[in-house]
Design a binder for these strands. Structure first.
Length: 456
DNA sequence: ATCGGCTCGCGCAA
DNA sequence: TGCGCGAAGCCGAT
């Protein structure tokens, strides 16, 4: 077959299954965490393959019950976004199929049944996703590619190992950032129609068959989906970005982008945000401060989860931190709270309780307080192992952006010194950085913050 | 209000 | 081998 030059950078792609391209059924994009029709390198790559082969393009999404203990809150945000995406895809003559059940089994079955000519999926370093992909690759006889459509600089290309800190990854990203920060081509109206599409609304049926924890309710202050994500981005750039450097660590000020749920579900691409921020009329220091978090810190979290498969447990911490935490494991805890006491915000610390309630009731905790929140869980739990488990449980249960590489890296930073340096030794924390209640309340108007936290 | 020390290890210069 | 410096701090001295 003729190999045509592709506009998606080859360094963004990896081969998961080496097999000659066929010329039979559709090209399939198995959509994972990049849940959007626009500005999606994985989808664009799949479309280019399909155009070259002159075949239809089908996007499939595999929907599992209780994925990593997600609750109705996250499912509802995700499905609302997917509905909008599926409509956008259909408008481009790209078919969308929602497959309910065991993801790798359902995906492989669909690929085999439709006699697909190749399969594209998006990059995500979580263990469960890697296991799914491996299983699918084993059970199909067709080429399968993976595209990093999340990071601006592809994660597996920028570094071959776990980076020690932001300062070791930053220069590697910056050296090649502009090579990868290219504008997105538009998704084309696909000229070859897929004839096997099922009639009817797949979402109604799927919702009925899902078995998920419904005790954590959806939140109504934020709208899901690609167009809401773009509106949120534009509002942030226009109204809040200029004061971001001064106000970002102040939980009583409304200065954050509120983009993390959208970024988590891939309803917006960080490169889209990057390009919009760059071309905005905002002081350079504000752009720099925001882009550091949008690019370096987010991509550092993916780097961590890609190269450290203990990203969600004590074993994944750096050696110096494990050593010092073990040394202080038996230190007396002045306060010791059970999971339920923490979950219901019944501690002696009004600031911590407020942050916890903000998360439980809103699905989003202020970014700066997430650090304080995590460090106090270490201080009040019987071991660092327990603290990590509890923090991940609460984060994944209540945050809209739970189960994100950023969530794991953030918790490991707070509790276990990941990507951080050693500091003065003290009880429980050892040499892991400590944060104190007294310093926090001196830094910002916490009464104002607490006043605005939704208490139910 | 501001400053230095705390303390570890990577990466680069020499 | 030495040295600078880092993902968001704390504390005590001045």
């Amino acid at each position: 077959m003729v190999v045509v030059a592709m506009s998606v950078d080859k360094r963004r792609t990896r081969t998961l299954k080496d097999y000659p391209l066929k010329n039979t059924g559709p090209v399939i994009y198995w959509m994972g965490r990049e849940q959007r029709a626009s500005d999606n390198w994985a989808l664009l790559y799949a479309q280019e393959l399909a155009l070259n082969l002159k075949r239809p393009l089908v996007v499939i999404f595999t929907l599992a019950s209780g994925y990593l203990d997600a609750t109705l809150r996250q499912y509802s945000f995700m499905l609302d976004g997917l509905k909008e995406t599926s409509i956008s895809l259909e408008k481009k003559n790209i078919s969308f199929a929602l497959l309910v059940g065991d993801p790798p089994a359902k995906a492989a079955l669909f690929i085999n049944k439709t006699n697909a000519c190749s399969v594209v999926t998006d990059f995500e370093p979580l263990k469960i996703k890697e296991a799914w992909k491996k299983k699918v690759a084993k059970n199909i006889s067709v080429a399968m590619f993976e595209v990093d459509a999340r990071n601006i600089v592809p994660c597996f290309f920028v570094s071959p190992k776990q980076e020690f800190g932001a300062y070791t990854l930053r220069p590697k990203i910056n050296r090649i950032l502009l090579e990868f920060a290219t504008p997105y081509p538009a998704l084309k109206k696909h000229p070859y129609k897929y004839s096997g599409a099922k009639k009817g609304d797949p979402f109604a049926k799927a919702a009925a068959s899902l078995k998920i924890d419904e005790s954590v309710k959806p939140v109504n202050w934020v709208e899901a989906g690609e167009s809401a994500a773009k509106r949120t981005m534009k509002y942030f750039i226009k109204e809040k970005l200029a004061r971001y450097p001064d106000a970002k660590n102040d939980a009583s000020k409304n200065a954050l982008s509120y983009l993390s749920p959208y970024l988590h579900f891939g309803q917006i691409s960080s490169l889209t945000v990057f390009n919009e921020v760059k071309k905005s009329c905002t002081p350079q220091d504000a752009k720099d401060a925001f882009l550091e978090e949008l690019v370096v810190r987010r991509e550092l979290a993916d780097n961590f989860c890609l190269y450290n498969k203990n990203y969600d447990s004590f074993d994944g911490l750096p050696d110096w931190a494990k050593k010092t935490l073990v040394k202080h494991k038996a230190d007396k805890r002045e306060y010791l709270y059970s999971l339920k006491e923490l979950e219901y915000a019944k501690t002696h610390d009004a600031l911590w309780n407020a942050a916890q309630l903000e998360m439980v009731n809103k699905g989003k905790m202020h970014g700066y307080l997430r650090m304080y929140w995590g460090k106090k869980i270490l201080e009040w739990s019987k071991s660092p192992e327990d603290a990590i488990k509890i923090a991940i449980y609460l984060n994944d249960r209540y945050e809209l952006d739970g189960r994100d590489t950023n969530g794991y890296a953030g918790i490991m930073w707070a509790i276990g010194g990941l990507h951080d340096r050693a500091w003065g030794e003290r009880d429980i924390f050892g040499k892991v950085r400590f944060m104190s209640y007294n310093s926090q309340i001196k830094k910002f108007n916490f009464k104002e913050y607490i006043k605005n936290v939704p208490i139910s």
